[in-house]
Each structure stands twice: as structure tokens, then as C-alpha cells.
């Protein structure tokens, strides 16, 4: 089995890299892939919390690289019955504890055994970013429709291209449909035209994402959540399925639904 290493990065912090990693990883595993997610945010680990595996950590990625433990000792199996593993970051070290080359070797080892190796990249463009991107063959960039996040994403795309990672894919996270409709938030087209990269997913702002993160159960497990559905579709696209992007629209209230029905019936009669 020769898998693919994908880095999930953003430049700016707090846009949802870790949430995206946890959800895409889970969704890919739910689709029947063997998946391992690697947290490279050394010193500020979060991925284990969001996946609800915090209290099962014994060894971490730095331990593996330093030879303290074997690779499979640091891999934490997800609670569910599909093949999803986590290699957590060390909390007591910093980004300089590992070298890009070491992580590249680690991922090459993992690729032999897994379909997908997802790397959760830390914020910033320093050592941690260099470590995380060195090992990857593909990149997914997470941004929100905010000027600052887009500016950072632009910088990241430039840096990735200069290190040989071409054609990164873009996830636009936390889109608030009402705000887009009012013209208070950039829409997909604005972001796409500025960054000039392929959009692989649009994730609406959804309270359930926060609830899920707090509970340690990725939101893709919640079939009613709009964000969960968006992450499932992203995973399908990563997996090679051709699913068109779904426009994110405000949920219809009772009143607007009623108006729609009246409007539709009116048209029907006028044509009849």
C-alpha cells in the first residue's frame, strides 16, 4: 500500500486547521480508508483533544523521531471501529525538536501502511510549517472569508509553490450564509479569484462544530450537521470522487418557505 501524505495548513491561526484535519481524517476512515493523522503542532497540541483521544497518549511524534518508542507504540487507535490512528504532538517540547527530513522519513514509513497520512500543520511560517510541509505531496489550505486569513493563505500558497508543492486545494471555512447574502462577507467567488487556486470545499459556520470539538467527537459523526456534511463531501473529493461544490445558502425560515410555496403555486396557476 502506498499512501498519500497531505498537509493541512493555513498560515493564520484559528481558522480551523485542526478541526479540518480531524474531520477529513475521520471522514476518510469512515469511507473505508486506512488513515493516520499526525499532529505537528509541537508544544501546542490540540488534535488529540478534538478527536477525544487526549487521555490515551503515552508516546508522541518526538518520541518516535528520537527513537524512544516504536512507531506503532505512538499510534493511538480511534475509539470507533474503522481504521483511524493519531500520532500526537509532544506538549513539552518545541518546533525545533524535529527536522523536516525526520518527519519526511516518518511519513514515508507511514505511507507504506496507510492510504492517507494527514499532517496537521501549526500556524505560522517558521520551523513548524517547514517541518509539516516537507513531508507532504499535497496541500490543503484552510481559510475563512476574512481579509487577514486570505492574506495569510496567499502567502502560504506562495511558500508552498516555492518549495515545490504546486496546486494546493482550498477549503473556505466558517462561511456565514446570511452575512454573504447581505454583502457583509466575501463569497466563494471573491476568495477564489484572489487566491487563484482550486476550491475543494465550502464549510458553513455551524455551532455543532464547536459542540463536537468540545465533546471530542468530530462533527462528521453528526449526520444532521451542515458542517459535518461539508467535511464528508471534502473527504469524498480528496478520495477522488467528483462532487460539485454546493452553494451555501441561508436556511429557509418558516415564513420564507411559506412565501416560496405561495409563489410557486401562483406561478403554477398562471401557467395553467
Amino acid at each position: 500500500m502506498t499512501g498519500k501524505t497531505i498537509v493541512i495548513t493555513s498560515g493564520k491561526g484559528g481558522v480551523g486547521k485542526t478541526t479540518a484535519t480531524a474531520n477529513i481524517g475521520t471522514a476518510l476512515a469512515m469511507r473505508g480508508n486506512r488513515v493516520v493523522v499526525v499532529d505537528t503542532d509541537i508544544g501546542l497540541r490540540n488534535l488529540d483533544v478534538i478527536m477525544g483521544l487526549e487521555n490515551r497518549i503515552v508516546y508522541d511524534v518526538v518520541n518516535v523521531i528520537e527513537g524512544v518508542c516504536k512507531l506503532n507504540q505512538a499510534m493511538i487507535s480511534d475509539k470507533h471501529d474503522y481504521e483511524l490512528f493519531l500520532i500526537p504532538a509532544a506538549q513539552t517540547r518545541d518546533k525545533n525538536a524535529i527536522e523536516p527530513e525526520q518527519l519526511r522519513e516518518l511519513c514515508a514509513e507511514l505511507e507504506k501502511d496507510f492510504d492517507y497520512v494527514l499532517i496537521d500543520c501549526p500556524a505560522g511560517i517558521e520551523q513548524g510549517f517547514k517541518n509539516a510541509t516537507a513531508a507532504a505531496q499535497e496541500a490543503i489550505i484552510v481559510t475563512t472569508p476574512e481579509v487577514s486569513a486570505i492574506r495569510d493563505a496567499d502567502r502560504i500558497i506562495g511558500l508552498l509553490e516555492s518549495s515545490g508543492l504546486h496546486n494546493p486545494k482550498l477549503i473556505i471555512n466558517r462561511i456565514a450564509p446570511e452575512m454573504v447574502k447581505r454583502g457583509d462577507m466575501m463569497d466563494q467567488k471573491d476568495v477564489e479569484s484572489l487566491l487563484a487556486v482550486e476550491v475543494i470545499g465550502l464549510v458553513p459556520a455551524d455551532e455543532q462544530t464547536v459542540v463536537a470539538a468540545n465533546r471530542g467527537i468530530p462533527v462528521v459523526h453528526n449526520s444532521k450537521s451542515s458542517a459535518g456534511g461539508a467535511f464528508m463531501r471534502i473527504a469524498a473529493r480528496v478520495d477522488g470522487e467528483d462532487i460539485p461544490l454546493m452553494a451555501i445558502e441561508p436556511k429557509n425560515g418558516l415564513l420564507s418557505r411559506f412565501k416560496g410555496m405561495v409563489g410557486m403555486s401562483g406561478r403554477t396557476y398562471s401557467h395553467a
Binding site: G158, E161, S162
Partner: peptide
């Protein structure tokens, strides 16, 4: 220059 690919003291590879 921009980019950070490889660096030695004299020769730099830059995108």
C-alpha cells in the same frame, strides 16, 4: 529573494 528551499553559504536555490 523569496522562498526557502535549500541554503548553503554561497549557492542558494530559490523559487
Amino acid at each position: 529573494n523569496r522562498g526557502f528551499l535549500l541554503e548553503t553559504s554561497v549557492v542558494q536555490v530559490i523559487a
